[in-house]
Lab assay of single mutants.
Amino acid sequence: TETYKYDDKREAEKAAEEFRRRGITVTVEERNGTWVLESK
């Protein structure tokens, strides 16, 4: 599991889209005002 942090929800979702395009499952969730993207 890799974790990436973003200040902006849009950025996180854009990154998530890129991962999914490569066939990687990711989750995006907000933690304490930071958007956390996790690849499984």
Score class of each variant (00 low, 15 high):
A16S: 03
Y6C: 02
W35A: 01
V26Q: 00
E30G: 03
D7G: 11
E13I: 09
A12W: 01
T27M: 09
E17D: 10
Y6L: 02
T25Q: 14
R31Q: 09
R31H: 10
K9N: 03
T25W: 15
K5A: 12
E29R: 11
T34N: 09
V28N: 00
E29S: 12
E13F: 10
R21N: 10
R21A: 09
K14V: 09
T25M: 14
I24Q: 09
L37W: 01
D8Q: 06
E11N: 06
V26L: 04
T27G: 03
T3N: 09
E11G: 05
L37C: 04
R22C: 08
E11V: 06
N32A: 06
T34W: 15
E17R: 06
E18R: 08
R31T: 05
D7E: 12
S39P: 13
R31A: 05
E17V: 05
E2P: 11
E2F: 15
F19M: 12
N32H: 07
V26F: 07
K5I: 15
T27I: 11
E30I: 08
K14N: 08
K9S: 05
E30M: 09
V28T: 03
V26E: 00
N32Y: 05
Y6P: 01
Y6R: 01
K40W: 14
T34P: 00
T34S: 12
F19N: 02
G33H: 03
T25D: 13
E2L: 14
E17H: 04
R22K: 12
E11W: 04
Y6W: 05
I24P: 00
A15Q: 07
D7L: 14
Y6S: 02
I24Y: 15
T1H: 12
V36T: 05
E30V: 06
V28M: 10
E18H: 07
R21V: 07
Y6K: 01
K9P: 10
D8K: 06
K9I: 09
T1D: 09
I24W: 14
T25P: 10
R10V: 13
F19T: 02
E17C: 08
A16R: 04
G23S: 02
D8R: 04
A12S: 02
K9T: 02
G33C: 03
T25Y: 15
E18N: 06
K40R: 10
W35G: 00
A15G: 02
V28Q: 02
V36P: 00
G23M: 01
E2D: 10
G33K: 03
R10M: 12
V26S: 02
A12T: 01
E38K: 11
F19Y: 08
N32V: 03
E30H: 11
R10L: 12
V36W: 12
F19I: 05
K5L: 14
R10G: 11
L37G: 00
E2G: 12
R31V: 12
W35P: 00
K5F: 15
N32S: 06
D7N: 14
K40A: 12
R31W: 07
T25R: 10
T27N: 08
G33L: 02
K5S: 13
A16C: 04
E18I: 07
K14Y: 06
E29M: 11
A12Q: 01
D8E: 06
V28E: 01
A15F: 04
R21E: 07
G23R: 01
K14F: 08
E18K: 06
K14D: 08
W35Y: 08
S39G: 07
V36I: 13
G33F: 02
T3R: 11
R22H: 09
Y4G: 06
T25E: 14
Y4W: 14
Y4L: 11
E11L: 10
N32E: 10
T3D: 06
K5E: 13
R10S: 11
R10I: 12
E13G: 02
W35T: 01
E38G: 04
E13V: 07
K40E: 09
E2V: 15
E18A: 09
E11D: 11
K40H: 14
S39D: 07
A16D: 00
K9R: 12
A12V: 03
G23V: 00
E13N: 05
T1C: 13
T27K: 08
R31S: 06
E17G: 04
A15Y: 04
T1M: 13
E18D: 09
T3E: 09
A15P: 00
K40Y: 14
E29N: 08
E13P: 00
T34I: 15
E29A: 11
N32P: 01
V26R: 01
K5G: 07
E29F: 14
K40T: 13
R10K: 11
V28W: 03
R10C: 09
V28P: 02
W35N: 01
E2A: 13
V26P: 01
R31D: 07
E29Q: 11
S39Y: 15
F19E: 03
A16F: 03
T3W: 12
V26I: 07
R21P: 00
K5T: 15
D8G: 05
K14W: 07
R10W: 12
R20P: 01
A15L: 03
E18S: 07
N32C: 10
R22S: 05
E17N: 06
E18Q: 08
E30N: 10
V26H: 02
T34D: 05
D7I: 12
V28S: 01
S39F: 15
A16V: 05
T3H: 09
E17I: 06
Y4A: 07
E38V: 15
T27A: 07
T3P: 08
K14Q: 10
S39M: 15
E2Y: 11
V36D: 02
E38Q: 11
R22M: 10
T3G: 09
N32K: 04
T27V: 12
I24C: 13
E17W: 05
K5W: 15
I24F: 15
D8S: 15
A15V: 08
E13M: 12
R21W: 05
A15I: 05
R22N: 09
E13T: 05
R21C: 08
K9L: 11
I24D: 05
R22E: 07
W35K: 00
G33E: 03
T3F: 12
W35S: 01
N32F: 05
R20A: 11
E18G: 07
K5Y: 15
V36K: 02
T27Q: 08
R22P: 03
T25K: 11
G33N: 04
V36H: 08
Y6A: 02
G23Q: 02
E13D: 10
Y4E: 04
E30T: 04
I24R: 06
A12I: 01
K14A: 13
E11R: 05
F19A: 04
E18Y: 09
D8V: 05
E38I: 15
R10Y: 12
G33Q: 03
R21L: 10
E17Q: 08
G23F: 02
V28D: 00
E17Y: 05
V36L: 06
G33M: 03
R31K: 10
E17T: 05
S39H: 14
R22Y: 07
A12H: 00
K14L: 11
T25A: 13
E13S: 03
D7T: 15
A15C: 06
K9Q: 10
S39Q: 13
Y6F: 14
I24M: 12
E38S: 12
E30R: 08
R20N: 08
R21T: 05
S39E: 10
A16W: 03
R20Y: 07
A15S: 04
F19P: 00
R22T: 05
K40V: 13
V26T: 03
T1W: 15
L37Q: 00
T25F: 14
I24A: 09
G33Y: 02
K14E: 11
K14H: 08
V36N: 03
K5R: 13
D7R: 13
T34A: 12
T27F: 10
E11H: 07
T27R: 08
E30S: 06
W35L: 01
K9C: 06
D8A: 04
T1Q: 11
D7A: 14
A16G: 03
Y6I: 02
E17F: 04
V28Y: 03
A15D: 03
G23W: 02
N32Q: 06
R10E: 15
K14R: 11
T3K: 11
S39L: 15
V36E: 04
L37K: 00
L37M: 04
I24V: 10
R20L: 10
Y4P: 05
D7Q: 13
T25G: 06
T1F: 14
I24K: 07
Y6V: 01
E13H: 07
R10T: 11
E18V: 06
A15W: 06
K40N: 11
V28I: 13
T34L: 14
